[in-house]
């Protein structure tokens, strides 16, 4: 049972499904609270889905985003424009910056078209919402960015260090 290799021709290709992922770092001059971030992320998911359909997609598998800030994380997704978008997660305090990974899985259009629709959707909503795109990298996760640990993560690691040194 050998892997088919790196040609990207798995079952999803046979079914006309294409995927595209991108990581971005965004900032805003004003602080962004949980409600604002959730609403922005949901709007972005629906916009990407809309653009994919406009570009000729037959169906949206899902458009998903993982938003990470120093004060918590949010996950947002849509399974199609008529279904709206959904988000969950907690941002404990307003922030100026956020990291976002977006994954689009769509049926009926090629990967480069999914990429175009995804990037256009992100940029359109970012611009409308007054967000600045600080960094953007395709085909990767924001772990590869210069990410700063969340407060919770920092506290947990600090606590572990204390326990080790005391133990």
């Amino acid at each position: 049972m050998d892997d088919a290799g790196e040609n990207g021709h798995g079952c999803y290709t046979e079914h006309g499904v294409s995927g595209y992922g991108v990581a971005i770092k965004l900032s805003h001059d004003q602080t962004m609270d949980e409600a604002w971030i959730k609403s922005m992320a949901e709007e972005m998911m629906v916009r990407v889905a809309d653009l994919c359909m406009e570009h000729g997609a037959n169906a949206i598998g899902h458009i998903k985003a993982h938003v990470r800030t120093s004060a918590g994380t949010v996950k947002a997704d849509t399974i199609g424009t008529s279904h709206g978008a959904y988000s969950q997660g907690t941002i404990s305090q307003p922030v100026h910056e956020l990291y976002m990974a977006v994954n689009s899985i769509v049926q009926g259009i090629k990967e480069h078209v999914v990429a175009e629709a995804t990037l256009d959707g992100i940029h359109q909503v970012a611009e409308e919402r007054g967000l600045h795109v600080i960094k953007e990298k395709e085909h990767t996760y924001f772990d590869e960015f210069d990410f700063v640990k969340s407060d919770e993560e920092f506290r947990r690691e600090f606590q572990e260090q204390l326990e080790k040194s005391e133990g």
Binding site: G19, V22, K64, T73, A101, V102, N103, H139, Y141, D143
Partner: peptide, 15 residues
């Protein structure tokens, strides 16, 4: 296992 190059679900679960 995810298609679409970046593991959004995996990261969410990791958290």
């Amino acid at each position: 296992n995810e298609i679409g190059e970046i593991p959004v679900d995996g990261k969410v679960i990791e958290e």
